[in-house]
Amino acid sequence: MLEGKVKWSNSEKGFGFIEVEGQDDVFVHFSAIQGEGFKTLEEGQAVSFEIVEGNRGPQAANVTKEA
């Protein structure tokens, strides 16, 4: 699992980007967020995730919010 911080997200469009130190930003779709209820990410929020190869390149999977 990698750790990063949410660079920005748009809940209306359903995606955002995660900033990882020393690496390119990672695309995240809201379907990759683990948990119940409305899935949102806040700018600056710490997250853990895996990287998978998506249709348009690397993207985050199994995203969990850190406490």
Rank of each mutant, 00 (worst) to 15 (best):
L41Q: 01
G57F: 04
T40N: 09
W8Q: 00
F38E: 13
S9F: 15
V63I: 05
I18R: 02
A67F: 13
N62C: 10
E12I: 13
F30Y: 10
P58R: 14
F30D: 00
E21Y: 12
Q34D: 07
G44K: 04
E3M: 15
Q45C: 10
F15P: 00
V26L: 08
E21K: 12
V28L: 07
E3G: 10
A67C: 12
W8I: 01
G54D: 06
N62E: 04
Q59H: 08
A46F: 14
V6N: 01
A46M: 14
K5N: 07
S48P: 00
G54M: 07
I51E: 00
G22N: 07
D24L: 11
G57Q: 02
E21W: 12
V26Y: 04
R56N: 09
K39V: 09
G22S: 05
S48A: 08
F49K: 01
A60E: 02
V20I: 10
V20R: 07
F27R: 02
G16L: 04
F15N: 00
P58Q: 07
G35T: 08
N55V: 14
V52P: 01
I51G: 01
V28T: 03
N62R: 10
F49E: 00
I18Q: 01
S11L: 14
E19T: 10
V6R: 01
H29G: 05
H29Y: 08
K5E: 03
I51L: 11
A60T: 01
S48L: 13
V6E: 00
E43S: 12
V63P: 03
K39Q: 14
E50W: 13
V6D: 00
Q34N: 13
E3V: 15
E66A: 14
E43L: 15
V26K: 02
P58V: 08
F38Q: 11
Q34C: 13
G4F: 04
E43F: 13
I18K: 00
A32D: 08
A32I: 04
S9C: 15
Q45I: 09
P58S: 07
V28R: 00
N55H: 14
S48C: 13
F17N: 00
E53V: 14
Q59M: 12
I51S: 02
Q34R: 11
W8C: 08
S9D: 00
E50I: 15
K65H: 09
I51M: 08
G22E: 04
E36R: 09
V20G: 02
V20S: 05
K65F: 14
Q59R: 11
F30K: 05
E36N: 12
E42T: 12
E66M: 15
E3L: 15
D25T: 04
R56E: 05
V63Y: 00
Q23W: 11
Q59S: 05
G57L: 03
G4N: 02
E42Y: 13
V6G: 02
Q45E: 13
E19F: 10
N55P: 15
L41H: 02
E12C: 15
K65M: 13
E53Y: 15
G35L: 05
G54K: 06
F27M: 02
L41S: 01
G16I: 05
F49G: 00
E43N: 13
A46Q: 12
V52I: 12
D24M: 12
V47Y: 05
Q45K: 04
E42A: 11
I33R: 00
G16F: 14
V52H: 07
G37R: 06
G35E: 08
N55F: 15
K39T: 09
G4L: 04
S9Y: 15
A61V: 12
E19I: 09
V47H: 01
F38S: 12
G37C: 11
S9E: 02
T40R: 09
F49A: 01
K39H: 10
S11D: 07
E21P: 13
I51H: 01
D24R: 14
G14P: 03
V26R: 02
Q59G: 03
F49P: 00
V20L: 09
V52W: 08
G14Y: 09
Q45S: 08
E43R: 15
N10S: 11
E3I: 15
E42K: 13
G57S: 05
F15Y: 14
A32M: 07
D25F: 05
V26G: 00
S48D: 02
E66T: 15
E66Q: 15
R56H: 10
N55M: 14
Q34L: 14
H29S: 07
E50L: 11
K7N: 03
N55E: 13
G54N: 06
Q59C: 08
M1F: 13
E42V: 13
S9P: 00
E53I: 15
E36A: 11
A46I: 15
W8T: 00
F49L: 04
A46S: 12
Q59K: 08
Q23T: 07
A60K: 00
H29A: 07
E36D: 12
D25S: 05
F49Q: 01
T64M: 12
E53T: 12
M1L: 12
E66S: 15
Q45M: 11
G57K: 03
V52A: 06
E50V: 14
E42L: 12
E53C: 15
G22D: 06
V52D: 02
K13N: 05
N55Y: 15
G44H: 05
S31E: 04
S31V: 03
K39I: 09
V6S: 00
K5A: 05
I33Y: 05
A60M: 01
Q45W: 10
W8S: 00
Q23S: 10
A60D: 01
V26C: 06
F38Y: 12
F38A: 12
P58I: 09
G4K: 01
E19W: 10
I18S: 01
G37Q: 08
L41V: 06
A61P: 00
E12M: 13
Q59D: 01
K7P: 04
F38D: 12
F27Y: 09
